[in-house]
Amino acid sequence: MTTSAPEPLLTLSNVNTFYGQAQVHFDLSITVARGHIVCLLGGNASGKSTTMKIILGLVKPRSGEVTFDGASLVGLTTPQIVRRGIASVPEARRLFADMSVRENILMGAFVRNDREAIAQDLDRMLTLFPKLGQRLSQRAGSLSGGEQQMVAMARALMSRPRMIVMDEPTMGLSPLYVDRVLELIRTINQEGVSVFMVEQNASLALEIAHEAYVLQTGKIVLSGPARALKDDPRIRDAYLGGSEAA
């Protein structure tokens, strides 16, 4: 969309998605440039999580194209897509509740086989998320929401992804943790990982994003550089419309 931007890593073009008869996406087109943080905003039930599921191959579009690093993802299974270098932090974390924190983090490295490097990365996660150090052998389900979010992010990083997709990473967290999460996303991004995140909280997301898209009942109604959108009154309008409809 912006000609001066770096080359695209992920693109969705003209994606139409249905659940049974109900259409959720209408000609959805989104581009995530290499090295950028791109944020998808929208009210309840606007189709944000479904966009994540399309990228991850958990839901198949009826028409349209999804490409990652130039190659099509349509027709690949979720594990195949993950192996291409996309990691995810799902909505509501979705940790493996009965496994330990250590096992959860290591599950993130499931696609890798380099044992020693994995062990090193685990140590690296503990410096990035110091709080998890004392929690390693605890059941993941027994952690607080904020701690679970940390585990989910560490788990995603363990696959050494080229891109991370996150579904409402700040949802339900205390303000302290929200700041921490946003800062971590920025850190992760600075280490070269592209980020696609879904958010309801526009002002927070626009703080850290490079570009943003606004989704309303399955259609992109607004998009552009985050800086420009931050002050756009239409953001607020789009939101009010979106959440009232829900």
Binding site: L56, L58, T77, T78, P79, V82, R83, A87, S88, P90, R94, L95, F96, A97, M107, G108, F110, V111, R155, S159
Partner: peptide, 9 residues
């Protein structure tokens, strides 16, 4: 969590 497991590959 079947879906989450798939997302781990």
């Amino acid at each position: 969590d079947r879906d989450a497991a798939m997302q781990m590959g």
